[in-house]
Amino acid sequence: MLDDHLIGVLSNMGMISFIALSAYLVLVVGEISFGQQAFFAVSAYASGIASAMWGWPFLAAVLWGAAVAGLAGLLLAIPTLRIRGLYFAIATLAFAEMVRLALEIFTYQVEQDGELVGPNGSEGFRDIRYIYEADISAGEFLLVILALLAATLAIILWIERTRLGAILRMVGEDPVLARLQGVNVNLAKIATVAAAGLVAGIGGALYAHLNTYVEPKIFNVMLGVHGLAYGLIGGLGTAFGPLLGVALDIGVLESTRAFSGYRMIVFGGLVAVLLIVRPRGLLDEAAVYRIRRFLLRKHAGD
């Protein structure tokens, strides 16, 4: 039904969407993170270890990877609580590089059927063979990715409609004022950064299992920069924003090869232009408000 190329593109879009949503959550509470790839990496390794070395079932491995990434988020959130803006951004970048460099020296191997399995420093982590052993096709795995993405997106969209969603937007817009509404700003930030780690972690676990091989240098800063840029392009008014960013970059620029070698130049230019023209992205709060009002009016008219 779908050709391999299309399946590959859609799978990539699905997996990077988790990083985009993760960076978006941090942006909603008013901070910029260049380090969400760290949680992607942590979970890729943790879930790979669980399925390939400990023999855990796939879904349990994904949840475990996401949980470990969430914990890593907590680890980042607590010491960075008192810094904001540029300083927070630099701290996330440093954190992600620390994680990547730690993975370069992280070795944990066991012998299975006469072969050594497990992360081996900068050599990477081979043979995360779950999808071969379970005989899952790329198309089927794409469905798994999309199902998990839809579930994650649904939860985020639902939270945005609750009071917690309003609280997070308040924290992002004016933390001092939010505090004066009785909001525990510190708690909201810690919880959000931890949740963002978890979301990126789901994507990381999927990535490790689809590719069967991960190595530290995949998780370099460009991965995080892309994840961050998707929210800034697509818009910060709704969780659909970062997905729109992903669709524009990977779906249009990369996969159609419209600009071939100039893609990154076009992408960078797009980010720069949007930051000037629409600092909160295409689907910013005002746009979302207008769309919602339009839909409500149409609904009422029927």
Partner: peptide, 16 residues
């Protein structure tokens, strides 16, 4: 909170 609705501006404080 300019990006929140009038109602949301009241909502959070009220419930807190």
């Amino acid at each position: 909170f300019g990006d929140l609705t009038v109602w949301q501006n009241l909502w959070v404080a009220q419930n807190s």
